[in-house]
Design a protein around this nucleic acid. Structure first.
Lengths: 194, 194
DNA sequence: CCTTCCATGTAACCGGTTACATGATTGC
DNA sequence: GCAATCATGTAACCGGTTACATGGAAGG
């Protein structure tokens, strides 16, 4: 196993917490109360950083509650029942511990990306197809940037009224990075098409 | 399933080819002949784009050969036997088809990254810890850039004698992007620490 | 001689996604 | 009335990693 077991000790034993756990814990701590809402919130904010699914969110909520990091309340809305979660003191402590424990050496920077993998093997293509591929990659970077500026950043900015600035910052980092990549590829495009 | 089944038709039925398949196929097409060597080559080139493991490479080689995309030759080296793979015409066609078929809309740009996820939730931290986190993230970006420029790029440049330029280009894209992120975070750091 | 590297594979496990199943509420 | 959205969950599957198991070759 090596170093840094991602285990958090609670009064009731210990829980193994991984990024999806902290995603759920973090969302609840931002005031998102139901599983359904967490998934929706993740789709317009952390989707690029860490995608998730309902089939992951619901069991995780149950698990976090079982270990005392979340507290559940039945929130009856007509005949429909809904679970409203809030973070416990222990849950908040777990989140903060995680945020404070980041070690740059254990998690190396990765860009796992099929597009870039194709570019790596592009020597196999003739000049025309190489150019097409680079243009497609640019298009994707442009799409990503546009989507973030049009949808993600405004949604994040709405949270600033609650004193939350980092969602906006991260969204900007993503959009700016996408622009940087587009720019880089545009220089490559010119180089390939003189 | 939806759109774009990643299936390639061969004389002997059809194969489902995914990024790890093309990683193996591509590496063999670059002249890397054994499973062991493919893993080693991937570790100093495509690791950031698409990590892999021996437990993935070996079965994939067998599968690709079974479908006629690779051809295997027993390469006896003393008492030790080793499999030496080469790409068949069909294998080369499959690789080129994949490289030519990139659709920017189906594969959205993702930065799946635990570090950025932490930054997203950093409002939970006090100012001092926020600063520490940003500095840690910078350190990681610097490490990544340094490692690429010291190890990955020189290794890629050695391939240029064989007429391969894209491995070097992709390595530079990675290193430059890491530098960009470091720079972006350094501005954030100044903003947080006035 | 002994360590490191070359070399090939399998078994067990885990993290995550897709698909399935169900039903109430809201808004047009 | 009907469609879209809110809401919760499970089962099956898949992609990928870690750990296990084995042994020859090369280099100091």
């Amino acid at each position: 196993m090596g170093l840094g077991e991602p285990v958090f000790s609670t009064r009731s034993g210990s829980v193994r917490l991984n990024p999806p756990s902290y995603l759920v814990l973090g969302m609840v701590s931002l005031g998102v109360r139901s599983g359904y809402a967490i998934k929706k919130a993740a789709d317009i904010s952390t989707r690029f950083l860490w995608p998730t699914s309902l089939a992951q969110v619901y069991p995780e909520l149950t698990r976090l509650e079982r270990h005392g990091l979340l507290s559940r309340r039945e929130d009856r809305h007509g005949a429909r029942l809904r679970s409203a979660y809030t973070v416990t003191a222990e849950g908040r402590a777990a989140l903060i511990t995680w945020l404070r424990s980041y070690a740059p050496d254990t998690t190396p920077l990765q860009f796992r990306d099929e597009g870039a993998l194709r570019l790596f093997f592009a020597d196999t293509l003739d000049a025309g197809d190489q150019l097409t591929l680079v243009r497609q990659l640019r298009k994707r970077a442009q799409n990503a940037s546009a989507h973030m500026r049009r949808d993600i950043i405004p949604a994040a900015e709405a949270l600033e009224q609650d004193g939350l600035r980092f969602p906006t910052l991260v969204a900007h980092l993503g959009a700016d990075t996408a622009d940087y990549i587009d720019n880089w590829l545009s220089r490559l495009e010119k180089e390939l098409n003189p």
